[in-house]
Design a protein around this nucleic acid. Structure first.
Length: 888
DNA sequence: CAAAAGACTTGCACCGACAAAA
DNA sequence: TTTTGTCGGTGCAAGTCTTTTG
């Protein structure tokens, strides 16, 4: 098949890019994009997918522009796909009108009882959602949202009303949602349609698709170590794809098919330098070289890459190419492992350790105590500065913060220090000094800033990459956390405590047995320990200074193959739940009335997790903020509102408030009442339950099932269903609005919130003023229209000048334009208000199966770049070649 | 079996770069 | 040009869940 076609050139280039060393990030994309375009034009589809690229590519340093709208690299079949897609989304039903057709309906039918969910907002803006749903009992397959929809009372309607209680939550109304959407239109974008569409591949064979390219890219990055003997499959991302539409299986069993291997030349990575070297040029060069040769070889495109994997040889063989078409190769280790093999996560691992923050440089600015300057040692000054810098934050309003800070700082001052209490301290001089420093930094011109950035880059470069099984991968957090004052969220008992500086002797390194041990960056010191554990993915860890029983790990970046794989497995597990959900729901429904209290609690808890997307709720220690999840709900967190509504109000993860009033099935309502009787407000609602028991039970229902899978499942199925139902013919901007609306729905279900920006109020005020102004204009125009019709001249404008005489028709046109403008502004305002407390990003990053998005983009010719930014494209590289017909 | 360890995912805030508006 | 607003990236806290330990 043509598929393979990746042209070599591309490949090469890609590599080069990579070589650039990391920095250039998106070049690839560019290239990729180009390729795509090209393809679309007629060339072969190579899918240069993001896949490969990402992993390595990223880097970015410079910003390379990256492709603009490159269409997705759609798989060959694209054309069809697209067309098909059209059909794919069968329902084109008009969105607005129909209320959400499906879900509700279905449910309705199914279940008799409606629920309503309503959200409430809080006045302060905090959201709460009360959703009222009408849901029916179960709609098994239906996404929560769907169920929820039921009633929406709240429609979000009031556009302008700022506070309308409409709150975000209104998810339910479809209509309303749409309305919003309209507003949103922002994305105007145009894009190349060409691309999007995908090409024409015809068949949909999944396999065929473009895999090759992707692979290639990935490979590109790789470098091999010479020493390694193991085979290097350099392939980057394993994406194994699933065969066509995802059969889910992919995950574990992996088989790797062919690997594409690039040839990588191997660089030898030598010890210290290695990484650097490689990065720099080597790889690229190598790659190129090899590649070039290859290229020559085949004039045609090559699809496959080859690599050498030499096993032991370090040399390069050039290539053995394999064809890959579909294959996805997996990396050897990764794929397989998961499923069964032991738990091996990697075979070879090379990296340079971590980078430490610079030592403290005393500034010498004196703080005041009882009005007089005080001399502090550098150590004392360092901590005082940490506090001074936070003078304008909300932490200063928290007594606990001050108390904890004082306790720790006093230890440094000593009992007999002049400073005897915090109240008489004045940190203002240090605060001012700090503000000044910030200002100076801000004033630097771009040249200087660039120089600073480059200098930093240069120092950090070697730490940014790791070579995992011969593939160069980005490291996530290679910077050791600097000392500071602990900023716990909510009412954390430890806020304000000094988080001490981490030293090499606190750090344990995990690295391949054959890899050189990273040199300790601080002279005279050494690592706490060096391990070679290939059953874990961390590169290093240290104990959290605030809570010594906990660890801080250094992992690979999200764009890495290792992370991509587990991400994919996560979604496959959630998809599997689809096959079980019906019976699980039937099962817990039956247990609502079980005689066994424990069983009843499990049933109700599972119901809440499924229906409301609550988190499991592990037990917490006393030295943590007091937040809860499903299993740890307190009696006082749930209020029974006759006849069958429950009002939830509690602080969840990150002390984010969850407020929601929801209608539930009568047995659930009664069961909750029973669980509450005879208990105090602060007692556990589910006294016979904890997450271990709950998850153990869930595992009996479906292998590997845990509470969090429900969140992933409900989020993804909601997106999938909303997209397929609501997407209609139209331009890209409209489709994007549909996507955002669905995304928003999911965010609301998951209670993903964000704080209202400080300027929100001012922004709304400004918009209101503008609208008022336009309305004034409108009024004048209407008067002028009247006058014009009577042959009188228009009124003078505000400056007293005479306006031009216009024909009534011209004035009518102006009026119409102004009306449109006002409507748009009002819609924009409403959208802004609606979204002011809703965070869309979290669900996009963690809960929505990217294959849903990618497939939808392919079907509807929406450039994936319109939905996923650069980092998401990199993170979801494994999902890029999904079949356009993929459904969650 | 429960508690402690350990490993990994999820989530919000902040910050700087850049774009759009004034 | 200056100010304002958005967005991507980073930082690191806070969850979930598994495995080990006693």
């Amino acid at each position: 098949m043509a598929i393979e076609a990746s042209t070599k050139p591309n490949i090469v280039s890609d590599f080069d890019d990579d070589d650039d060393d990391g920095p250039v990030v998106f070049k690839r994309s560019n290239t990729a994009a180009k390729q795509n375009q090209v393809n679309s034009e007629g060339k072969k589809p190579s899918s240069s997918t993001a896949n490969g690229q990402n992993a390595n590519t990223q880097k970015g340093k410079t910003t390379v522009p990256f492709s603009k709208a490159s269409p997705m690299r759609s798989p060959p079949p694209s054309l069809k796909a697209s067309s098909s897609s059209a059909k794919g989304s069968p329902a084109k039903s008009p969105v607005l009108t129909s209320k959400t057709p499906s879900p509700l309906d279905d449910r309705l039918k199914q279940s008799p009882q409606p629920n309503a969910s309503s959200l409430d907002k809080k006045e302060d803006g905090s959201v709460s959602n009360g959703l009222e749903n009408d849901d029916e009992d179960f709609e098994d397959h239906k996404p929560l949202s769907a169920r929820l929809k039921g009633n929406n009372n709240n429609a979000n309607r009031g556009p302008s009303a700022p506070k309308a209680d409409t709150s975000p939550i209104s998810r339910i109304n479809v209509k309303s949602a749409f309305d919003d959407s309209d507003d949103e239109a922002p994305l105007s974008s145009r894009f190349p349609k060409s691309c999007g569409g995908t090409s024409g591949g015809k068949h949909s064979d999944p396999d065929e698709k473009k895999p090759l390219t992707s692979k290639l890219q990935q490979n590109g990055s790789t470098t091999l170590d010479k020493r390694q003997k193991s085979s290097f499959g350099s392939i980057k991302r394993p994406l194994d794809k699933v065969s066509s539409t995802g059969t889910s299986s992919a995950k574990k069993p992996k088989v790797s098919n062919t690997y594409t291997e690039m040839k990588v030349k191997q660089v030898s990575v030598k010890a210290e330098q290695k990484a650097d070297d490689d990065d720099h040029i080597p790889i690229a060069q190598r790659m190129k070289k090899s590649i070039s040769s290859d290229i020559k070889a085949n004039s045609t495109k090559i699809t496959k890459v080859t690599k050498v994997d030499s096993s032991s040889s370090k040399k390069i063989n050039k290539k053995s190419k394999k064809i890959i078409k579909n294959s996805k190769y997996s990396k050897s280790t990764k794929m397989l492992p998961s499923s069964g093999d032991g738990q091996k996560k990697w075979t070879t691992l090379v990296h340079n350790g971590v980078i430490f923050p610079p030592p403290y440089t005393p500034h010498g600015v004196k703080m005041l105590y009882k009005g007089k300057t005080v001399d502090l040692t550098p150590e004392q000054e360092e901590v005082a500065t940490m506090y001074a810098v936070m003078l304008e934050t909300d932490y200063m309003q928290k007594p606990k913060f001050k108390e904890n800070f004082w306790t720790d700082w006093r230890k440094l001052l000593g009992k007999n220090h002049v400073i005897q209490n915090l109240t008489d301290c004045d940190f203002k001089p240090i605060y001012d000094w700090h503000q000044q420093q910030k200002e100076i930094k801000k004033q630097m011109n771009s040249e200087e800033k660039k120089a600073v950035r480059e200098e930093k880059m240069k120092q950090e470069e070697k730490y940014m990459w790791a070579i995992v099984d011969g593939v160069k991968e980005k490291v996530g957090n290679f910077r050791v956390e600097p000392p500071g004052l602990f900023r716990g969220r909510g009412e954390h008992p430890k806020m304000g405590k000094l988080k001490k500086r981490i030293r090499p002797s606190d750090i344990t390194i995990n690295i391949g047995e054959d890899a050189p041990i990273p040199e300790c960056p601080i002279p005279g010191e050494s690592w706490k320990e060096v391990k070679h554990d290939n059953t874990v993915t961390w590169l290093a860890f240290w104990n959290d200074p605030i809570n010594p029983k906990e660890f801080k790990y250094v992992f690979l970046a999200a764009s890495s193959s290792l992370k991509g794989q587990s991400d994919k497995e996560k979604y496959e597990k959630a998809r599997k739940l689809k096959d079980y959900i019906e019976s699980i729901r039937a099962s817990y429904t039956k247990d609502f009335t079980s005689k066994d209290v424990s069983r009843r609690q499990i049933a109700v808890a599972t119901y809440l997790i499924d229906k409301l997307a609550l988190r499991a709720g592990n037990e917490k220690d006393d030295d943590e903020a007091d937040t809860v999840g499903c299993c740890t709900l307190k009696v006082g967190n749930v209020e029974c509102i006759p006849p069958n509504k429950l009002k939830f109000d509690f602080l969840g993860k990150d002390s984010i408030q969850y407020v929601n009033t929801v209608e539930v099935e009568l047995p659930v309502y009664k069961a909750i009442g029973q669980f509450q009787t005879g208990k105090k407000q602060n007692d556990d609602l589910f006294d016979k339950l904890d997450t271990a028991k709950l998850n153990a039970h869930l595992k009996e229902l479906m292998p590997g099932l845990t509470a969090k899978v429900f969140r992933t499942y409900n989020a993804s199925i909601t997106l999938d269903e909303m997209l397929s139902k609501e997407t209609k013919e139209g331009d890209v901007a409209e489709k994007i609005v549909v996507y955002q609306t669905a995304n928003k729905e999911v965010a609301i279900i998951c209670n993903h919130q964000r704080s209202v920006s400080k300027s929100h109020g001012a922004q709304m005020t400004r918009l209101t003023e503008k609208i008022e102004e336009l309305k004034g204009v409108l009024k004048d125009l209407k008067i002028d229209l009247d006058r014009a019709r009577k042959g009188k001249p228009p009124l003078k404008d505000s400056d007293g000048k005479r306006k031009r005489n216009l024909t009534p028709e011209a004035i009518e046109r102006k009026i119409a334009q102004t009306d449109v403008k006002i409507e748009k502004m009002e819609r924009d305002m409403k959208t802004k208000e609606d979204l002011k407390t809703v965070a869309l990003g979290t669900s996009k990053i963690n809960y929505l199966d990217p294959r849903i998005t990618v497939a939808w983009c392919k079907r509807h010719e929406v450039p994936i770049e319109k939905i996923f930014n650069k980092s998401l494209l990199a993170k979801f590289a494994w999902a890029m070649d999904v079949d356009p017909e993929f459904r969650f």
